[in-house]
Write a protein that binds this DNA or RNA. Structure first.
Lengths: 329, 329
DNA sequence: TCATGATATCGAAACGTTTCACTATAAATG
DNA sequence: CATTTATAGTGAAACGTTTCGATATCATGA
């Protein structure tokens, strides 16, 4: 491994001069600069990033912590993060939280390996975040409930979104509305369900326990939830799936049983994933501003890095996207 | 930022002792160890990862370099990488090559910030890889052509796959077979096309230029390619899309024009993406062993890190997955 | 009792940078 | 000409760890 010392020696200058030259600092004359760069080229010098980060005490890198690198995840959200980070001249890496305490995520979270983190991972414990959060290390939390000092939440108005979805079904004449829920430890899911309940109540519709079934936010979960609903003798006329992934699975399952959408049953989802407009019929859903979530989160990090005070909660709103999967009764 | 020095002072030991204690090295008595850990806990000490990497001269992390973090990309491949890396006690980070020379990827590639790299990104130039490759820094290349010393390629037998796909159509009685190609700078695409041509020749079918159209590996590209083909007065009876993404778009476009699959036209894809079995009709395609690609790539890295000699090319094979989108004529 | 070895601890050097405080030279000022 | 100022370059300290070699303590057994 060739170091800056060797470059300096080859160029016949002090290592400080070499460093200035390599970093393009004006203090050095054009000739010596060229001499140094030439030497570096000849030796194929590559700087050691750690050494430099260590000295500079800053990495100019942000980490995006995901439950699992191998997705599926919101690519638009990532694009939002990426764009803003790049704008600020920062690098972005993504790492996985699989393995909890021993995960890569944990390593990056605890060992000062980045200047800030965006956490979108259920498998990082609140405990761990508490231990690691402090004023000089900005952490942005997505889809979480707990309050931690010096930590910021970016959220979407899930409850209002759940309300809107349900209300839309009601306005189309439905009263027998099922809810297919995600994992019970998801904050998003909890809020969407709350919105559903609130809408039923607002319109004086009696909630039916048999119509809330669990689907775990996965396509397969959606399928089995649909099967459960379809098997009931007194089934619902509309289903609100707590995310699109489940809705897509559910539609598939209904159709396989010869149940037509939206003629026999209406479907609404949540998220507006890419696929939503490619399924048949196209899925009516609640859109989350995913790009904006990523971008806002990242903006917040930079504000925190500049020691500006920021509001501990940042909420974005949702939109109803009307397509073809809901029929007026 | 509390350092190991402060921990040592608080525990009344030398910093070396503190280091031994914190790293769980036997040399230190149980009592002092506890004393140190206690002090560390009280001070909320977090080690500085760089300093430690710098000294140890190893990071125990691998980087996966992707064209764009915000996908779409092969999650199974990533899972393969992840699993093997974890098995070896290594961490994995993903970074984006957007921005070329100034990308995060470039930074990780050049600045010794990881112990090895897997590159799945067209936007990293061959030039750059050449500059950075050397014996102590394992780099595995996916979907690339160039030969660089001390660099290893993991490939899939794209050509045989392209051959198989085309042959399957031929065996089903098709002779008028279109090819929808990906970007011309993709090695994968080039080989799949070569397989297509070879199969036509093997069965004495005259290739038709008007039936090879370009779709850029994207869904939209697939749609427009399908539209071009559908507009021809003498259209093909079967289409081989060079990847599934395009095939899905193409199917949508055909169906929108009232052309039924597979009754009016047969479709075959390449990749076997998750969606392939969810579209209607289910897509017949060539499966790439994506998990195995990731896993093999990572295994190769570890062999290289152990200074074992490895073959510069590692090829995996493809399988024909028969579903519903091809009809026997 | 005295050498022997094991055990626990310590001090200091090292990893490869960056940057501060300085010096030497040359140019500019009055 | 004497003095200031700007410029180009240097040496050394520092960043926070790990680890080598040395030392001190103490029990062991001949």
């Amino acid at each position: 491994m060739v170091t800056i010392k060797e470059v300096a020696k080859k160029a016949n200058v002090a290592v400080s001069t070499a460093s200035y030259a390599l970093n393009g600092i004006k203090k050095v004359s054009p000739e010596t600069k060229e001499k140094v760069l030439q030497a570096a080229r000849e030796l194929n010098y590559r700087k050691n990033g750690f050494a430099s980060d260590l000295k500079r005490n800053s990495t100019k890198t942000l980490a995006l912590i995901l439950s699992d690198l191998s997705g599926p995840f919101y690519s638009e959200l990532i694009r939002g993060v990426q764009d803003v980070a790049t704008d600020h001249g920062y690098d972005l890496i993504a790492c996985s939280a699989i393995g909890g305490e021993n995960s890569t995520a944990a390593k990056f979270l605890t060992e000062h390996r980045v200047d800030g983190c965006i956490v979108l991972a259920h498998n990082i414990t609140d405990e761990m975040l508490k231990n690691v959060a402090h004023h000089h290390f900005p952490i942005i939390l997505l889809d979480r409930e707990i309050e931690i000092d010096s930590t910021v939440h970016v959220r979407v108005s899930n409850k209002r979104g759940g309300f809107k979805a349900t209300e839309y079904l009601i306005q189309n004449g439905h009263t027998d509305i099922a809810f297919v829920s995600g994992p019970s430890n998801s904050y998003d899911n909890k809020m969407r369900f709350a919105g559903y309940q609130e809408a039923l109540q607002a319109y004086n519709i009696e909630p039916q326990n048999k119509w809330v079934v669990s689907g775990n936010f996965t396509r397969e979960g959606g399928e089995s939830a649909a099967n459960i609903l379809a098997a009931q003798d007194q089934g619902p006329t509309a289903v609100f799936f707590a995310n699109d992934e489940m809705a897509v699975g559910g539609m598939e399952a209904f159709q396989k049983r010869g149940i037509s959408i939206p003629n026999d049953i209406s479907i609404i989802g949540f998220d507006d994933i890419l696929e939503a407009k490619y399924v048949n019929p196209k899925l009516t859903t609640i859109r989350q501003p995913k790009y904006e979530m990523g971008a806002s989160a990242t903006h917040l990090i930079f504000q925190m890095l500049k020691n500006e005070k920021v509001n501990p909660i940042f909420e974005l709103h949702t939109d109803l996207i009307i397509r073809e999967s809901v029929k007026k009764l």
